[in-house]
Write a protein that binds this DNA or RNA. Sequence first.
DNA 1: CGACCCTTTGATGTCTTTCAAATCACGTGG
DNA 2: CCACGTGATTTGAAAGACATCAAAGGGTCG
Lengths: 221, 221
Amino acid sequence: MNLANLQVIPRFSGLDPTVLEWIGGRITLREIKNGDVLFWEGDPANTFYLVFSGAVKVCKHLESGRELILDIFHFGEAVGEIALIDDSDFPATAEVIEDGSVLVMSKTDYLDILDRYPTVSRAVIRDLTYRVRELSSRLKVVGSGSVEMRIACILKTLARHEEGDTMRISRQDLANLAGARLETVVRALKPMVESGIVQTGRNRIEILDYDKLAECAAELR
Amino acid sequence: MNLANLQVIPRFSGLDPTVLEWIGGRITLREIKNGDVLFWEGDPANTFYLVFSGAVKVCKHLESGRELILDIFHFGEAVGEIALIDDSDFPATAEVIEDGSVLVMSKTDYLDILDRYPTVSRAVIRDLTYRVRELSSRLKVVGSGSVEMRIACILKTLARHEEGDTMRISRQDLANLAGARLETVVRALKPMVESGIVQTGRNRIEILDYDKLAECAAELR
DNA sequence: CGACCCTTTGATGTCTTTCAAATCACGTGG
DNA sequence: CCACGTGATTTGAAAGACATCAAAGGGTCG
């Protein structure tokens, strides 16, 4: 892994070149393709992953066969870090939902870096803080309001992580984010399509009117 | 705040007496009573709180008038820490739901300690990690299954924080944890009472049969 | 004793799930 | 280039879960 790429990652920015080089020697870039699974719930956590491009969903599979997406990770975000820190098995499954690449490092090296550089551990605290906020926000969304409001809110959040206003996500994944069923999402989306708020396609949703979308999510903040 | 009390708090254990004494001089113990509000959503975050006894709920108030409880904090847990770390306003309201006491410290001193002692910052990472797990777990609970399963799951979790098997919580707060309505909770609780799994009273729920309760929460693992 | 808060119950309506089936879009091989 | 297979999306009808509204019951504390 070369220095130029490492430097743009918030987690490692601010470290001096010597350290970066050391890290670069222990970290590798791995291509990921839609459907790939980085790890399954219950796997022993001995690897650190950080999304460099593309997207990874982290989800729980319930006994009913339903799947609930806890979070979706994009550039610069660490996946499965929790399990490394508290030395447990992965509590959820990580699956690629958009082609790209991840940085991979051994648990030992990860903990080593964490222990050695205050800059990094401060970055970890910052990232964890952000995750707590994200999860709190998701909890609020999932725990209240109609499916339509939840969808609107989720789309707003997703849009923040995408370049344009077009999101690459299946109806099924949207349902798994909202804690709803696929068919319900389709039906909730219909009025939004008809009133020109969003436009849809296969694995694709485009926001046309951000303000109206925000209105749909009104109650949730 | 005396050293003996500080030492039993996980966050500060492992620090040497000199440091503890310094911290003790900047921290005060404050009594809290049911219904007290430590801070409101939107308040500027300039104080660090840590529950010493009793319990505090952190919740969001939705426009619909509904309230969603994000988390309930007990002994040793920091409340509103996120806002201190990322220098923002409190994102939710903290209200006392069980008489007790909290440790109070200024934001400046808190950040000072965090910056100065790796032991503490490691403890913060550990606590944040725990919170991410808790929130993930709550997300799973709220986002799936019937209200009865959710309630069972929530009771199991609550029981871990209480001394006996008796919890002091109102039906309303239980509903706000489950993302359901008061009446729905009452109705979901009825079969559990009738089959001898739990016993209820005013602001009180006692678990009689932990195994059967776990069965009720089955799907949510 | 009475006010107040928490809890319980009932009736009704709405939203969501469930199950089943049809349609559509995309990539593949002929 | 077109037919075809596969997976994603859409639609419908019926059942079920939950919310809502209204009112009554019960315990606690001043």
